[in-house]
C-alpha cells in the first residue's frame, strides 16, 4: 500500500526540545504522518526526557489526525501503561475512544469496532466522570448505542420482510428493552405492531400501539400504526383510554428504566 510521505527520519542525534519543536511545526503545517514520525524520534533519542513523555502523546494525536487509527491507539495505550497517573492520561483514553469511534462502519457490516468504541468511551466516563472528555464521551456513547440499535433493527426488518414474525418480534423487543433511549424505539414499537397484526394478535398490537401513541404522539411511526390498526378494523381509540394509566407508567418505566 502507498506509504505516504517519506516517514523515515534521518537518524541524527539532536537535543530533544529541538526535535520536538520541529515535530510540532510539522504538525501545524498539517503533515501529520511526518509529524508523528518526528515525535517518535524525540522519544527514541531521549527516552527519559520530559519531552519523551509529551511526544508520545503528540505522536498518538498526529497519527489520529492522519487517520492512522491503529498506530494512534497503540501509542496512546503505551502512554497509559508508562504513565497511568499522568494528568493527560484522560486525554489518552479519550484518544483511544475516538480513534475507534471514527472507524464505525455501516450497520450492514460487522460491528466489532462499534463495540470497541463503546467500551473505550465507557472507560473514559467511568475513570474520569468530571473531565470535559467525559461529557463528549457520554454524547458519543449515545450515538454508538444508537448505531448498535440500528444493527438490531436492520436484522429485525430483514426477518420481518421475509415474514419470520417470531424472529422479528424478538429482535424489536431487544431494541425496546436494551436500547430504550435510542432513536430507534418508535420504529421498533411500530414494527412490533406490524408483526402482531400480521400474526393476528390484536390485543398485543393495540397494547404496543398505545404505548407508542402515549410516548411518541407526534411521531410518523405512531401515524403508521394508527393507520394500520384502523385499516384492519382494530379499534385503537378505546384501547388507549381503557388501559389504566398505571399500565402506561409501568411500560414507560420498562423503556426508560
Amino acid at each position: 500500500c502507498a506509504n505516504g510521505p517519506d516517514t523515515s527520519v534521518a537518524y541524527v542525534e539532536r537535543p530533544a526540545e529541538l526535535i520536538y519543536a520541529d515535530a510540532f511545526a510539522t504538525m501545524e503545517r498539517g503533515q501529520y504522518q511526518l509529524a508523528a514520525a518526528q515525535f517518535d524520534e524525540v522519544e527514541r533519542q531521549h527516552p527519559y526526557s520530559e519531552w519523551a513523555r509529551r511526544s508520545m502523546l503528540m505522536a498518538a494525536f498526529a497519527n489520529y489526525q492522519a487517520n492512522k487509527y491503529d498506530e494512534a491507539v497503540s501509542d496512546a495505550r503505551r502512554f497509559i501503561s508508562l504513565h497511568p497517573g499522568n494528568r493527560s492520561a484522560p486525554y489518552a483514553y479519550y484518544l483511544i475512544a475516538i480513534s475507534y469511534f471514527e472507524q464505525i462502519v455501516d450497520v450492514g457490516r460487522d460491528q466489532q469496532i462499534t463495540q470497541q468504541a463503546l467500551d473505550a468511551l465507557q472507560q473514559v466516563v467511568r475513570r474520569y466522570p468530571e473531565s470535559r472528555y467525559a461529557t463528549d464521551a457520554r454524547l458519543k456513547i449515545d450515538m454508538t448505542r444508537d448505531h448498535l440499535a440500528g444493527k438490531e433493527m436492520d436484522i429485525g426488518r430483514w426477518y420481518l420482510r421475509r415474514n419470520y414474525h417470531l424472529a422479528a418480534v424478538n429482535r424489536f423487543q431487544n431494541v425496546v428493552r436494551d436500547y430504550g433511549t435510542t432513536s430507534h424505539v418508535p420504529e421498533a414499537l411500530h414494527r412490533l405492531v406490524e408483526a402482531y397484526v400480521a400474526l393476528g394478535l390484536d390485543s398485543e398490537a393495540t397494547q404496543v400501539a398505545s404505548v407508542l401513541g402515549y410516548n411518541f404522539p407526534g411521531s410518523d411511526w405512531y401515524q403508521n400504526s394508527y393507520n394500520l390498526l384502523t385499516r384492519e378494523g382494530i379499534a385503537i381509540e378505546d384501547a388507549v383510554n381503557q388501559r389504566d394509566p398505571s399500565f402506561i407508567e409501568r411500560a414507560m418505566q420498562r423503556i426508560f428504566g
Binding site: 450497520v107 450492514g108 457490516r109 444493527k151 436492520d154 436484522i155 430483514w158 426477518y159 419470520y164 417470531l166 424472529a167 424478538n170 429482535r171
Partner: peptide, 15 residues
C-alpha cells in the same frame, strides 16, 4: 460482505 448476504444462506432462523 453485508450481514443479509450471509444470513440468507442460513437454513436456520431465530426461534
Amino acid at each position: 460482505t453485508l450481514d443479509r448476504i450471509v444470513r440468507r444462506e442460513l437454513d436456520i432462523v431465530e426461534g
